[in-house]
Each structure stands twice: as structure tokens, then as C-alpha cells.
């Protein structure tokens, strides 16, 4: 099985990297982009014994910093 964990910055947390990417896109001539936020995608290969609760615990304990980030889990 494979799960994808999306780690994103919470609303209200400034994202200097997203801002730099935004400026770079504008520099390349892409118009109409109003904001860019950068996050992280972590793919985890695991057996069927790893539950959603386990993945949530992994996210809370290590993969995301709950002070500044949120996470979403997508399993298939």
C-alpha cells in the first residue's frame, strides 16, 4: 500500500519560499498568479497493518510540525 501525506503551512503562517516562487513565476512572465504556498509531499509504502491512525501519529510526531503545519493523508 502507498499513502501520500501532504504537509502544508497553516493559514496565517508567512511562507518566504512561496513568495520567492511567486516572484520567480512573475519574472518568467506568468500573469494572474495571486499567491503561492509551498508544502511537502511524503510518500510512504507500507503494509495493510499500518492504519490511518498510525499515519496520523507519524504525521503528528515527526512529519509535520503542528506549530506551523497541517497535514492531509491520502491512502490507496
Amino acid at each position: 500500500m502507498k499513502s501520500r501525506i501532504f504537509v502544508t503551512l497553516k493559514n496565517g503562517v508567512l511562507d518566504p519560499q512561496g513568495k520567492a516562487i511567486h516572484h520567480a513565476l512573475e519574472g518568467l512572465g506568468f500573469a494572474g498568479v495571486s499567491d503561492v504556498r509551498a508544502g511537502r509531499l511524503i510518500e510512504i509504502e507500507h503494509d495493510e497493518n499500518v492504519s490511518k491512525a498510525d499515519l496520523e501519529e507519524m504525521s503528528r510526531k515527526l512529519l509535520a510540525n503542528m506549530v506551523i503545519e497541517n497535514f492531509e493523508i491520502e491512502s490507496n
Binding site: 503562517v13 508567512l14 518566504p16 519560499q17 510540525n65 506549530v67 506551523i68
Partner: peptide, 16 residues
């Protein structure tokens, strides 16, 4: 901060 001994987080410098 990551260990929870201090509050908050240290993020990328504002000027990158």
C-alpha cells in the same frame, strides 16, 4: 523547539 522544550518554530529567513 522541535523537541517541545521551547514554544514556536524557526522558519526560513524572510529574505530567503
Amino acid at each position: 523547539t522541535e523537541a517541545g522544550l521551547l514554544p514556536g518554530a524557526l522558519m526560513r529567513n524572510a529574505g530567503i
